[in-house]
């Protein structure tokens, strides 16, 4: 079975992997230890696997690992870490937008991409910006509030 050598940067650090043609970026990232990228439906429906690929938010389960060769990838840990939370992350914690936490990494990535494009989204734009992310716990309201608050904080 043919394997392909791929190299990409994840949160600024170079990663190499030898992948099969059908390997998805999601599975490859997790095999490399990036367990902050969550896996669930593997069909593009839930958004748990969202990462920034060359700055664009995508479902890592819909991308072949080989397609990401040479790309810049940012996971939730590249957005902010325990000691140094991004405003989106801090607001989600403060507003009670985390229950089981499974959807949170994907939500943070999708919200980051939304605010990068649109620093002052309307409530409707926030809802649409998260349309690709499922959360089975929070009912979304607190997430929407957190993202609105983060946007305001980031605008200063």
């Amino acid at each position: 079975m043919s394997r392909y050598e791929v190299t990409f940067r994840v949160n600024g650090e170079e990663r190499r992997a030898s992948v099969r043609g059908e390997a998805t970026l999601l599975r490859t990232l997790r095999e490399l230890g990036h367990l902050d990228v969550k896996t669930s439906c593997e069909a593009g429906d839930c958004g748990a696997c969202a990462v920034l690929l060359d700055g664009e938010a995508v479902n890592a389960c819909l991308v072949l690992a080989a397609q990401a060769d040479g790309c810049e990838i940012v996971t939730v840990r590249g957005i902010g870490t325990e000691g140094n939370l991004h405003p989106i992350q801090r607001q989600i914690v403060e507003k009670g937008g985390v229950q089981c936490g499974f959807c949170t990494p994907g939500i943070v990535v999708a919200a980051k991409a939304l605010l990068d494009r649109n620093p002052a989204p309307s409530p409707e734009e926030i809802r649409r910006g998260l349309a690709g992310n499922l959360c089975r716990c929070t009912g979304y309201q607190k997430l929407f509030e957190a993202i609105a608050a983060a946007a305001q904080e980031m605008r200063g």
């Binding site: 995508v58 999708a110 349309a131 690709g132």
Partner: peptide, 9 residues
């Protein structure tokens, strides 16, 4: 069409 994550690809 879909959501933003899918639309980007």
């Amino acid at each position: 069409f879909a959501g933003p994550l899918v639309r980007n690809r």
